[in-house]
Design a protein around this nucleic acid. Structure first.
Lengths: 195, 195
DNA sequence: TTTACAACCGACCCCTTGGTCGGTTACAAT
DNA sequence: ATTGTAACCGACCAAGGGGTCGGTTGTAAA
């Protein structure tokens, strides 16, 4: 057989990129097909419809990507420093295009949560996972932190600020605002420590 | 003449609501027409195309709305308290639907900044106005605040966090997460004070 | 070598979209 | 009463969207 799994993976990856750049709705199948050099028949052989393709992208591309990004940042000895380094690295290492495209999770949350229940649930699940990941690891070092901290609340605040900053940079089309907000976010995080 | 200005205003307001709820691209002219009980000819008599209608909504509906909301919150004697009260009021007073629909500015920023330069520039302008509004009013009471504050940076951070929180609540479909993040945001803002 | 079927192809379908345009209607000015 | 024109109407159009389906091709098993 021609390598079916390879074809599927190829479609998935390119779809992930297109959806990241243009959003789910604005991504047309024809644009994916063109980039994949694959026929519509092939796509519909692997996925029953566009929605399911979107779900597959979320589960097989985005989800592992998030975990691969956030876990090492936060499961380190000092999650406070880990988080700050993670965010700072994001400013310095990411290309301008990447930053302007925003966080796929936030993008999909904004675009699809209100329209499609399948996407909403997947986004929500990812957000809760992410939140727990951060909250638990902060709690782990709670001895170093201020005594009055609500870990879940702080974790949500961190993610919200991060998403807000990536949203901001979409209108300015450059990293400047992004790194500005990230700088303040790092200040906030560092400030969680006992003084 | 039939009241042309009234017709125009009606189209503008309903368009503003539809765009707020469904986004610009997903809002179809036919849905606006149906709600307005106005013909397509009438709409195209007042606006040259959909894009220009969108711009008009931004300038004549959203912009005044933002200023009317943020100015009183921040031009008060104590902007720290004003901001906190403003955010808290938003949690308690807004309907669940309103919160889940998100902030029109943030929505448009996310959806349109990358697609259309006209929208991008308008969004950017509004964000800068908002930022200056907050930054200047914080600076005004800088005597009460911590000495090391970068006002513009803090102002952007506040707006980013606010937008991030309204984004979060889209996936949960209720106020809970929103008010959680807002609570932490208020903590952060209060913490700007000299201890 | 034959067979069976997964993998793939692409012309076609229907629907919705933004946008056009020739025509009608109401009203203000003469 | 006539007329000029802003305001409005809605049938129509082309483009592009997602999705279908009968047909072809490659390859592993018999």
């Amino acid at each position: 057989m021609r390598d079916a799994e390879q074809t599927r993976q190829n479609i998935l990856e390119i779809s992930g990129d297109e959806i990241h750049k243009h959003g789910f709705t604005a991504t047309s199948l024809s644009s994916i097909l063109k980039r994949c050099k694959v026929s519509k028949g092939a796509l519909y052989h692997h996925f029953p419809n566009k929605m399911e393709l979107g779900y597959a992208v979320f589960e097989e591309i985005y989800t592992p990507m998030f975990l691969a990004m956030w876990q090492p940042a936060v499961e380190v000895d000092d999650p406070i420093e880990g988080l700050c380094q993670f965010f700072s690295l994001m400013c310095t290492e990411s290309s301008c295009d990447e930053i302007v495209s925003g966080c796929p999770l936030n993008n999909l949350c904004q675009e699809m949560s209100g329209i499609d229940e399948g996407f909403r649930l997947r986004v929500l699940n990812m957000q809760q996972q992410l939140n727990q990941l951060i909250a638990l690891n902060l709690q782990r070092v709670s001895a170093q932190l201020r005594p009055d901290i609500d870990f879940s609340q702080v974790a949500y605040f961190i993610v919200a600020s991060f998403h807000g900053s990536s949203s901001l940079s979409k209108s300015s089309q450059n990293k400047e605002l992004f790194s500005k907000v990230i700088k303040e976010l790092c200040l906030y995080i560092t400030n969680l420590r006992r003084n």
